[in-house]
Amino acid sequence: MTPMLEAKNLTKRYEDQTLALDRVSFSVLPGQIYAMLGGNGAGKTTTINIFLNFINPTDGEALVDGIVTHLQPLAAKTKIAFVSENVMLYPNFTAIENLEYFTKLAGKRYVKKDLESVLSRVGLQKEAFDRKLKGFSKGMRQKCGIAIAILKDAPAIILDEPTSGLDPKAGFEFMKLLMELREEQKAILMSTHDIFRAKENSDVVGIMNQGQLVMQRTQKELEGEDLEKLYVQFMAGYMEPVSA
């Protein structure tokens, strides 16, 4: 099967010569959840930023459905939906108005009923649909963010630490939703600090440390393994990076 998201020797060196990514390679197939684990500054967000063409790689390439993101950024972006760590929307617009705007921006047209149906699906209370965003909690905003991603109906979804700061129930519901999207054959790349959920819900887990992908295991390979122990070991640099 052709990968929907693919990193090929992705390297990023910033102007101050900091090596943020060092020849990172991985791929995410349709219907697969890829969890990227790693501490702060490990390179997870840099990888995501390259996929979204917020920055260009110094070397290597990121591909979305075979499209090189830094060569054809607009074409690549039509195939990605993005949910950030802290979804921020227009505070003076209602949830529905925000959804309407961002889905139109993604080139989709929905009637209000469809928008309400997706907001219900992500678990937002009905009375919040027509409320302005400025009163929303982080969890409610994350739900709106995932609703926007669902409505974009892109084949790939990239999530940057989407459950950080969410209460356990909200986190659980969020992951449940991701599982549903996986069933819809979406390729999902997610950076997270949540080792437990990464092991429980992901098809592939990658651990990044100091810009390198130091470990990559499938769900099957992780069976019987203590992921937390592995994480600590790889983060401490006990083991060698995964070869490209």
């Binding site: 961002f102 993604a106 926007i148």
Partner: peptide, 14 residues
């Protein structure tokens, strides 16, 4: 600062 620019440019916006 508001955080909306990132989400906007996650779309194909020239």
């Amino acid at each position: 600062e508001q955080g909306t620019l990132k989400l906007t440019f996650a779309n194909a916006v020239p």
